[in-house]
């Protein structure tokens, strides 16, 4: 699918640009949105941008997944991608889900306590608006 890119440097630059755009969308959401749910959704979009960045930058054209199946008989770094970033991103995805669930629970608790979940209406600490 990515063979049209030819050189992997060009591919990596394209992936970096794309991830920067997605991260910018997420940053916009975090800074501009007022609803707490939307803010945590934007955080999870930023996570997705980071996952794409890590996985994409360790892929090069014509490389296979690091799994032995028909056609591959031994582990060779010349034809296989690096397994370490994939394993680390697998860990990060699970931790991201756990943290997102806990954050949404706190949002629901906050909504039950106050009746709203907009950050510009928060005045629990008694600051003047």
């Amino acid at each position: 699918m990515f063979d049209a890119f030819g050189s992997s440097a060009l591919l990596h630059q394209a992936i970096t640009l794309l991830c920067f755009i997605i991260f910018g969308v997420a940053l916009f959401g975090v800074l501009v949105k007022k609803n707490l749910f939307n803010i945590f959704l934007a955080f999870s979009i930023a996570e997705a941008a980071l996952f794409l960045f890590f996985i994409g930058n360790h892929y090069a054209a014509q490389l296979q997944a690091p799994i032995l199946f028909e056609g591959l008989s031994r582990f060779d770094p010349a034809v296989m991608v690096d397994p370490l970033p994939q394993a680390m991103i697998l860990t990060t995805i699970v931790i991201g889900i756990a943290v997102l669930a806990l954050a949404l629970t706190f949002v629901i608790r906050y909504y039950k306590l106050t009746g709203h979940m907009r950050i510009d209406e928060m005045d629990e600490l008694g600051e003047d608006r």
Binding site: A9, H58, P66, I67, F75, M80, P83, Q86, A87
Partner: peptide
Amino acid sequence: LTPPIDTIGETLLHINAQSTQVANAVTSVV
């Protein structure tokens, strides 16, 4: 951006066959 040379992942791929006998290298790393 330069292609990484001689990363930990390459070493893990080299020792994976004799130390784990697992066909999926990501599983053996995890």
